[in-house]
Amino acid sequence: MRYSQVKLATFQARPNRFIANCQLNDQLVVAHVKNTGKCRELLLPGATVALTYCPSPQRKTDYDLIAVLHEGRWINLDSQIPNDLAADGVRRGLIALPGIAQVAAVRREVVFQDSRLDLAGTSRDNEAFFVEVKGVTLLDGELAAFPDAVTTRGLKHVHTLMAAQRAGYQAYLLFIVQAAGITTMTINRRLQPELAAAIAAAQAIGVQVLVYGCQVTADSIEVAEPLRFSLDADFILPG
């Protein structure tokens, strides 16, 4: 995935979760933040950020904030891109689904029971599967964690994946870490211990947890290598 018309700016402030004030050359601009997470450890005054220029009469801002340079590496903040990367990666075989020999079809935004899961599909052998995708931007060195804010929706999705697994589907929880240099991914138990407990219960009945890192620049992001998932790793928010 490559973004067009990318400009580097300096982050100033985030008046609310939807917008950021940024210094672009000699102009103060307002950008839409494509991530409603807190990102407090990333969006710091003076940080270099990547903006895409996308003016439209239907928009309130001319720019989207898509990435931030933090401790020497670019972190993509576009919360919509993990689903695009996942769908493309599964279709092309860049993201392997253990137990699915060859993917035949992939659909997006499919309802199961009372939830909408990100991906559904079938294999060449007519095995049916569901994939729920979560983007990850909370990092500390080589360790990544999810979530950065309590997510009742995410907890519900884990329970839905468990129901799908029990109903005969193969269910996957896929984390896309939107940065390079990560080796291990965990759950932010200190923030949401019930999510970690639910994922452990899901794994116990056969739901598989997958993690993929990405290569990220100011204007691009692509799926890279699979990463290790460990519920035992202890994440402490930097600072």
Rank of each mutant, 00 (worst) to 15 (best):
R124H: 15
Q113G: 01
F112S: 04
A198G: 02
P55S: 04
V216A: 07
A233G: 13
I19A: 07
A87E: 12
V158R: 00
N25I: 12
R40V: 12
E109L: 02
A198T: 00
Q113H: 07
V110F: 07
L24W: 05
P193S: 03
N35W: 00
R153C: 05
T10A: 06
F229K: 08
A180K: 14
I81A: 06
H70F: 08
V49M: 01
D62H: 10
Y53S: 08
K134M: 10
T10D: 06
P147N: 15
I66K: 02
V33A: 04
S220Y: 10
V207H: 11
L173E: 07
D84E: 10
Q27D: 12
Y172R: 02
A128W: 15
G181I: 03
L161F: 04
V6H: 08
F146L: 11
T48A: 05
R91A: 11
A144H: 11
L44K: 09
I176T: 06
R40W: 10
Y63M: 08
D125T: 14
P226F: 04
L69T: 14
D118H: 05
A167G: 08
Q12N: 13
G121S: 10
V136L: 07
P82W: 03
A202P: 01
A167K: 09
R40P: 00
T10P: 00
M185L: 15
V29P: 08
R189I: 05
D234T: 15
N83I: 03
L77Q: 03
Q102P: 01
A31C: 10
A197P: 00
V110G: 02
L143S: 15
V90N: 02
R124N: 11
V90L: 04
A47E: 08
A101F: 06
L139K: 08
L173W: 13
I100Y: 01
L42H: 03
E127F: 04
T152Q: 13
H159C: 06
L117W: 01
G37L: 06
L43M: 06
Q203D: 12
R14D: 05
D78W: 00
Q192G: 07
A13C: 09
L42K: 02
H70D: 12
G154H: 02
G154N: 07
H157E: 13
H32Q: 14
V68K: 05
G239L: 13
L173I: 08
C39P: 02
Y3W: 15
T160D: 04
P45H: 03
P82T: 06
R190D: 11
T137P: 04
V106P: 00
T183C: 09
I75R: 04
P193M: 01
L174N: 09
D62L: 07
L155Y: 00
K34H: 10
R228A: 13
E225F: 00
A164Q: 04
V111E: 09
